[in-house]
Simulated assay, not measured.
Amino acid sequence: MHQVNVQQIECLITLADELHFGRTAERLGYSQSRVSQLIAQLEHRVGARLVERTSRRVALTRIGEQFVDEVTPAYAGLLTTFQRARDRAMRGALEELRIGFSGMVYEQVTAAFLELRTTHGVRVHSVDLPLGSPFTALLAGDVDGAIVELPSEDDRLVVGFEFPAQDRLVAVGRGHAFADRDEIDVEELACLDMLHRDGDAPEHWKMVHTPIVTPDGLPIVSTTGVTSMQQGLVLAATGDHAMLVCRAYIEYNQRSDVRFIPVRGLEGTSRLGLLWRADAAAPQLAALAELLATTVR
């Protein structure tokens, strides 16, 4: 079965305007035989004569007139869509950024999104990412950028903006043996069953967010993985598990069933970053990074 293509539609609409095969061919840059061929193919696909041609005149049939009336708006819309895409490609513009997140979207971040839309006409569509797979969707091109936990040592990724560093505290349920403590020593992490982030993140990343040994070399047990912060807090609240959580996250997630305890001697802080692929950088991502530098405190 022959398929309708844009050339056939374009040819019929132009012929309806010119009512002359020679002028139609000249306007489209085709030969007259090519115009005749395209019209014949379209008529075969429709199953009816669309054009009447004699030695003296060219005219549309009634079916042809109705077809042109109905198809012209759709054709015009298609041309407009192509032109907009071409314009965006020429200026490197995107009207929407897909930004992945593996945690909360803080108010300061949404303020940057709103400013990006106001000043650059670019909307942000947020995409949830698994907590333990911060880079997978970005590397696959499923998102344009990602605001996720660092570090990143992948040369394929660019860190466009680093958020301020945050202290990390350990989250335990109200019934936990450490719940009444004001502070614990980093070596006491060996007494806890620490929740780890399930996913395909690189090992160096996992080691930062769930250490496997204390500074003195004591092993830190981790029997259970989580794919979101909320899942981790629920497990901490209802069992014997514990989880390292950054201070900024705690400020937006106060809970009566979880205690957040500082860890004395814990090296390294938690830091988020806005990342994008090195081979897919866009000026809108750089603009977002600049806005985040202004709005995030």
Rank of each mutant, 00 (worst) to 15 (best):
H125D: 00
H176Q: 08
A16E: 15
M194Y: 12
L235G: 14
E10N: 09
R156I: 04
A201C: 10
S270C: 15
R62P: 02
D69K: 15
G100Y: 00
R168G: 02
Q8G: 10
T269G: 07
A248S: 15
A179N: 12
W205M: 05
A76N: 10
E43R: 08
Q41L: 12
I63A: 15
V208W: 08
E18L: 02
L169G: 00
R91Y: 07
Q166M: 13
Q8P: 07
P215T: 09
D193L: 10
R247L: 11
R174E: 11
L266Q: 09
Y106K: 00
V127W: 06
C191H: 13
V172E: 05
L97Y: 04
A286R: 15
I63S: 08
G225K: 05
Q231M: 10
I220A: 05
M243Q: 15
D198N: 04
F21G: 12
E203S: 05
V213L: 08
P219D: 07
Q254Y: 01
V58L: 12
G225F: 15
M90S: 11
I184P: 02
G273I: 04
F161L: 03
L192Q: 11
D198Y: 02
T61C: 10
L114T: 01
L192A: 10
A248Q: 14
D279F: 13
Y252V: 01
L169S: 01
G239N: 14
G217M: 06
V122M: 06
A293Q: 15
L292S: 02
D144P: 00
R88F: 04
G77C: 06
E149P: 00
F113R: 04
V245M: 06
I184T: 03
E290D: 15
L15V: 07
S152H: 08
Q8C: 08
P130C: 01
G100S: 01
R88L: 13
T223G: 06
A59I: 05
F178A: 05
V221N: 12
R259P: 03
E96W: 04
A282F: 10
R98I: 01
E52V: 14
V158Q: 09
V172M: 02
D155F: 13
A165F: 00
Q231T: 12
Q230I: 09
I220Y: 07
V46T: 04
R247H: 12
L272H: 09
E18S: 13
A146P: 03
A278D: 09
E203T: 07
G273K: 12
E183T: 12
R264Q: 07
E52G: 13
R27A: 15
L285N: 10
G239F: 12
R62M: 04
L15C: 03
Y249G: 08
L60H: 10
L233E: 09
F21Q: 13
R255T: 03
R123P: 00
Y249W: 15
A179E: 14
D87T: 10
V172Q: 03
A93K: 04
D180K: 11
T214S: 05
R259S: 04
A140F: 01
L292H: 07
T136Y: 11
T110P: 02
H125R: 02
T210M: 08
E149V: 02
L94S: 10
L275F: 03
L28H: 05
L195A: 07
I212R: 14
M104P: 01
V158S: 09
P151M: 02
L218I: 01
L138K: 02
L275Q: 01
R247P: 00
L192C: 14
